[in-house]
């Protein structure tokens, strides 16, 4: 069930939320994924952009061009670091060596934000290179909270945890995803990285109301927003099955849902994520501007602290 609203229909009369601003150490602007294809362009042109985000694991190397360029870009831009390999939802214990390497990377680049996923990607010493889903019940909740605690204690900073895009559900789940997330936030004190595309993708895939998902999340907990493009397939019964592919521009329905979320949470640093079909930087920057325009819209003015 697809819902759509126009920006004119938005009305955000609520007062500014100080808690929100305190959470967001990144500039309350839009940023972009940092891709090696764009290293040189960025240093040559110094585009006006809120921040860059990297995937931690791409920089867990000893030296060479990745560190060379990131060091120079970090000198000029705010940074968020997004991990894809901690496997916080995994049954296996956290990889402590990996956690140590992340700590070193965070010390080196002092990002405003470090985030990870409500998912698992490793098992029994192997890394599967995908964000895999977990059932939502008391046992998995405990496991995730333990892992989040462990990460926050080791990194000595607050983690932002990202809501997942999922393609299956589990019959053993007896907690909704939003209640599961709220419980993690309350128990561990971590923040939420709200991926609007993931909300849309998962809601479509499991026939939930994406706005109800947004409405269920408490204001003041969202430290960052992700926007990305998806691709469309079909499930075994011909129902739409959206894939969180990050290889296309942000879809209109996701922009609408973004407006809706901004209305609820106020302005939040927002990333345009792109991992595939990487366009020239100017194209990515144009999408970043679209997000900036929404962050600066009249409807939200006055909610910025």
């Amino acid at each position: 069930m697809k819902t759509s609203i126009t920006s004119e229909s938005l009305s955000c009369g609520a007062p500014a939320q100080a808690a929100q601003a305190a959470l967001a150490e990144l500039p309350v602007r839009a940023g972009a994924s940092l891709k090696p294809d764009h290293f040189q362009y960025i240093l040559n042109h110094l585009p006006d952009i809120g921040f860059f985000e990297i995937h931690a694991e791409n920089y867990l190397v000893d030296g060479g061009p990745f560190h060379h360029y990131l060091t120079r870009i970090r000198e000029r831009y705010a940074l968020s670091i997004h991990g894809v390999g901690l496997s916080i939802g995994g049954e296996s214990p956290l990889d402590l060596q990996h956690l140590d390497r992340l700590a070193d990377l965070i010390d080196r680049y002092a990002p405003a934000v470090f985030s990870e996923h409500l998912a698992w990607s490793g098992h029994a010493g192997f890394f599967l290179n995908d964000l895999l889903p977990l059932p939502y019940h008391r046992a998995t909740l405990q496991r995730v909270c333990d892992h989040v605690d462990q990460v926050q204690n080791r990194l000595k900073r607050r983690l932002l945890l990202e809501n997942p895009a999922t393609y299956v559900e589990f019959s053993s789940s007896n907690i909704t995803e939003t209640d599961f997330i709220i419980e993690i936030l309350q128990r561990t004190g971590c923040g939420l990285l709200l991926d609007i595309n993931n909300v849309y993708v998962s809601s479509t895939n499991h026939i939930r109301d994406p706005r109800a998902y947004i409405d269920a999340l408490p204001p003041g907990t969202v430290g960052q927003i992700h926007l990305a493009g998806f691709s469309q397939e079909q499930d075994g019964a011909g129902a739409p099955l959206l894939i969180d592919s990050h290889d296309a521009p942000v879809a209109a329905a996701v922009w609408d849902l973004y407006d809706y979320a901004l209305c609820r949470f106020g302005p939040v640093p927002t990333l345009i994520e792109r991992d595939g079909n990487i366009p020239p930087f100017e194209v990515l920057q144009a999408e970043v501007r679209l997000a900036d325009e929404r962050l600066n819209s009249d409807a939200l003015r006055g909610r910025r602290s």
Binding site: H55, E57, N58, G64, H117, Y167, D244, D275
Partner: peptide, 11 residues
Amino acid sequence: CKAGAGTSCAG
């Protein structure tokens, strides 16, 4: 600077 595979959080 692209040598070797990188990680992604995309499907």
